[in-house]
Design a protein around this nucleic acid. Structure first.
Length: 602
RNA sequence: GGCCCCGUAGCUCAGUUGGUUAGAGCGCCGCCCUGUCACGGCGGAGGCCGCCGGUUCAAGUCCGGUCGGGGUCGCCA
């Protein structure tokens, strides 16, 4: 080793010891005859005193040094309470420059970490320098601790960590595949997996019984703050289990993770049905850190004369103190709603004396006005926002409005953690409802994925009422973020065929797309189910990061561009030729199979 | 793909109703400084104002387009 001690670990107890340290020059303070260097390594910072001006003068920020010297008590009044090593300093007897450093594109110094903001673009381009800073470095170290904690829990429960291929077959899942040309089979392509979903189910057929993997997944879709083209899941699958078993295991993992930041998640984590979540919060991932639940006013306005409220669904959400917003602010709400594809956002204000105001109020009868505050729970000074129309879109709008109200009115305790399982989601949704690409010829498509089992109550006759059939699936939601989800799978061939039938997928199409899985299931597939956690998002939540980019060592920026390596980049003509990118498929038929089945990704 | 915001020195930003030579802090370079810890002092370098076009006597500033970044809806579990 080039050193005997780590810089940040030295304490008063080391006084008198001769040590050799290595690290970077965090800052330097050169006084002519005496110079102070803040030497930084992974453990922290220690002050080094250099009395030889010849030696100290040429040193610059981020030079890599090897320092030998004696640990000494700092002179009276010169201690630095901001440093763990502030009681002592190292008086250098020998300074070796292990490497020099060019002037930096941005300042790295620990001392400036919280005072200097650097744009994300530069930080990502020089991510290796960014990671020298304590904040970004801490996030990456936390991620390592999170991985370790999960592995400890799963190893203790008898799970087997198994790697699955990243070069695989393009299977019809929800998202677009990343494709890799196969040099040895020009015109044929590998796909990068959107998730290890199919492989983990095969491992259950293998009798592994308990599988997990910290798995990289790839989806070629547009990005968001919480989305990257490659991302990580903690992927888990178990045999001979029911929903409660998977949930119990998942809770063990989550508890272990949040313990890392000193929070004990109360278990069991409460559960809510999908229907209840939609009814009360207008979303399948409710943020339970605050109230302002939606009110269903469909019955209330059943006989209304107001045209706008003569709709299949009328609902409302209350904005506390919103009654005094200026007109301009209400116009902004209209714009906000329109940006979400709504026609607008009707509202009623409640004056201090309880009289209703706003353009909608005069369209209501006296009776409708009188009972409104009570029906919605609104109080004087509040305002009530309404959405009327189709139930799903109206609730979605109110749910989004609720979140916006929570933010604007500061109703959300940012230190709170609110977990909930959302269970009993519908098994199918009508095709075309959200402008989905129609799958096969069916009127229905899977909400989760095509291998999700109906709940035990529905398994016999989900065909009779596909719209109300429930999936044996569960999502774990934290503070309004879906951080994981899974399901009990179909293991019986006849059930699988019946599900495909509802979705309008013919036997031939099923064989073409997931024949290998169906074949495997013919050889004694055990009942099984599992879950996948959105690892990047979970670590981001634990780290208090705004973006999952903060918890990924080398993330991509918008457009899938990596500012550090410059990927993606053009390839040479020779590479093109060798890769077979331009090869023409021999038959058009094989490349033109049935459409994609949605939602196979977990 | 739609909408919103941002592109000025290495970094973070200011730049008036369009008006001479585009500024600040930090960083960088040189010199000085023996107890600092965001050390200090003096001096200095550093700008295709993202790019292209337009309006104008005159554009960092106004207009159109484009590229890049961020956010959001679509999309995506």
């Amino acid at each position: 080793m080039l050193r005997t001690h780590q810089a940040g670990t030295l304490r008063a107890g080391d006084i008198g010891t001769t040590v050799t340290l290595t690290g970077w020059v965090d800052r330097r303070r050169d006084h002519g005859g005496v110079a102070f260097l803040d030497l930084r390594d992974a453990s922290g910072i220690v002050q080094v005193v250099v009395r030889d001006e010849e030696v100290a003068h040429p040193l610059r920020s981020e030079f890599v040094l090897q320092i030998t010297g004696q640990v000494a008590q700092r002179p009276e009044g010169n201690t630095n309470p901001n440093l763990g090593t502030g009681e002592i300093e190292v008086v250098a007897s020998d300074v070796v420059v292990l490497n020099t450093a060019a002037a930096l594109p941005f300042q790295v110094s620990t001392a400036l970490d919280e005072q200097v903001t650097v744009g994300e673009e530069v930080r990502l381009k020089y991510r290796y320098l960014d990671l020298r800073r304590p904040g970004p470095a801490q996030a990456i170290r936390l991620r390592s601790a999170v991985n370790r904690a999960a592995r400890t829990v799963l190893d203790g429960e008898g799970f087997v960590e198994i790697e699955t291929p990243t070069l695989t077959r393009s299977t019809p899942e929800g998202a677009r595949d990343f494709l890799v040309p196969a040099r040895l089979a020009p015109g044929s392509w590998y796909a990068l997996p959107q998730s290890p979903q199919l492989f983990k189910q095969l491992l259950m057929v293998s009798g592994m019984e308990r599988y997990y993997q910290i798995a990289r997944c790839y989806r070629d879709e547009d990005f968001r703050a919480d989305r990257q083209p490659e991302f990580t899941q903690l992927d888990v699958e178990m045999s001979f289990v029911e929903q409660d078993d998977v949930i119990a295991l998942a809770e063990q993992v989550l508890v272990a993770l949040w313990e890392l930041i000193g929070y004990t998640i109360p278990t069991p984590i409460p559960r809510m049905t999908y229907a209840e979540a939609m009814r009360r919060f207008g979303t399948d991932k409710p943020d339970l850190r605050f109230g302002q639940e939606l009110t269903d006013l469909t019955e209330y306005f059943a006989d209304t004369g107001f045209r706008v409220f003569q709709a299949p669904y009328v609902g409302a959400v209350v904005m506390p103190g919103g009654g005094s917003q200026p007109r301009r602010q209400f116009d902004a709400w209209q714009e906000w709603a329109k940006q979400r594809g709504a026609k607008g956002l009707a509202y009623v204000t409640i004056g201090a004396d309880g009289t209703l105001g706003g353009p909608v109020a005069k369209n209501l009868t006296d009776a409708e006005r009188d009972g409104l505050a009570e029906a919605t729970g609104a109080r004087p000074g509040d305002c009530i926002f309404f959405a009327a129309g189709a139930q799903s879109t109206s609730r979605a709008l109110l749910g989004a409005a609720r979140l916006e109200i929570g933010r604007r009115c500061d109703l959300i305790d940012s230190d709170a953690w609110a977990f909930v399982w959302v269970v009993d989601a519908p098994l199918f949704k009508p095709t075309g409802e959200d402008d989905d690409v129609a799958v096969g010829s069916g009127a229905w498509t899977a909400v989760h994925h095509a291998f999700t089992s109906p709940t035990p109550e529905w398994i016999e006759d989900f065909e009779s009422d596909p719209g109300n059939a429930l999936a044996y699936a569960y999502d774990i939601v934290c503070n309004g973020n879906e951080i994981g989800g899974g399901s009990i799978r179909i293991h019986a061939r006849d059930v699988q065929e019946r599900v495909f039938a509802v979705m309008g997928i013919t036997e031939e199409e099923a064989k073409e797309k997931f024949g290998f899985l169906l074949e495997a299931f013919a050889f004694g597939a055990p009942p099984h189910g599992g879950i996948a956690f959105g690892w990047d998002r979970i670590v981001a939540l634990l780290a208090g990061a705004d973006s999952i980019r903060d918890v990924i060592a080398f993330p991509k920026s918008g457009g899938g561009y990596d500012p550090l390596t410059g990927a993606p980049a053009p390839i040479t003509a020779a590479q093109r030729k060798e890769a077979g990118v331009d090869a023409k498929p021999e038959t058009a038929a094989s490349a033109d199979g049935p459409g994609a089945a949605p939602g196979t990704g977990e």
